[in-house]
Amino acid sequence: MNGRMRFVAVNGSERADGNTNELLAHAAEVLDARGVDLDVINLAEYRLTGCGPCGDCNARTEPCVLAGDDLPALVDRMALADGVILAAPVHGFGLCTTMQAFIERAGVGYLRFQRPLTNKVGGVIVVGRRYSHTEVYHQLVDNVLLNRMVMVGAGFPAILYGNHRGEAVRDEEGVEMMDRMLVRMAAMARVLAEHRELTGRDALEVDQDNERDDRWFARRYETAGQS
């Protein structure tokens, strides 16, 4: 496979121009050198509605009925990528509220029907001043695994320390760990794509036993390529 690949990075920060975005700009350069284009979704720039009080999440067989926001289009961009990176800052000793709202709505309202992120490579980047990085990191890793992605790491996790804008990209050890993860993600995505191209099937078995009826995703991605 000689063509370029495409990753999507979800920036969960409420600030589109903060530390997280600076790290993703650096990530784009690293991936570009390895034949991967990075599509950055800055959640702060989109309309997102938090989960409501309807309470029918465990019975619905169609996507979330909360309409009028940008979530379906963002899910589309993830579903058609070769890899997905979840990047978020630590706020109030936990995951920032924008990313929390996104993973709740995207997961329960859309991704659980057919798990369209299955067998895509996944990575996690967490940035914050000093505390609770690992708690946020593990929550996002759990989300990657829940969506049946191939979690790629490189030793230490991509956890970076910084408070004011510009500090996180100067965390040399953190940036090194992030770079290692990105390089391995690009390599793994290419291996999986080459196997699919040569054999016509995924290297990893696709589990079709999903939590929800998949009619909506079957229609939406019936003719769209996901490699």
Rank of each mutant, 00 (worst) to 15 (best):
G122A: 08
I103S: 02
P116S: 09
Q100Y: 03
T223C: 02
N119A: 08
V10Q: 04
G94L: 02
D82R: 11
L48F: 00
P89H: 09
T61V: 14
N58M: 12
M178G: 10
G166Y: 09
R60C: 15
C54N: 10
G52D: 15
M185F: 09
G107C: 01
M181L: 08
D39G: 04
P63C: 08
E104M: 01
D82A: 09
R4W: 05
I125T: 04
V10G: 04
A154I: 08
G155H: 08
L140W: 11
P53W: 04
V124W: 13
N21M: 07
N147M: 09
R15N: 15
R219M: 06
R165D: 07
D202N: 14
Q139V: 11
C64T: 07
D209Q: 10
A88P: 02
G153E: 13
T98P: 00
N21F: 07
T199M: 07
D171Y: 13
Y137Q: 03
R77Y: 12
R130Q: 10
L182E: 13
A189D: 02
A25Q: 15
S227M: 14
Q208C: 04
L182G: 10
A87G: 01
Q114N: 15
L43K: 08
M5K: 15
C51E: 07
G18T: 06
I159V: 12
Y161L: 09
D171I: 03
D37L: 04
V10L: 03
S132E: 03
R219S: 10
L66K: 11
V127M: 07
A186D: 04
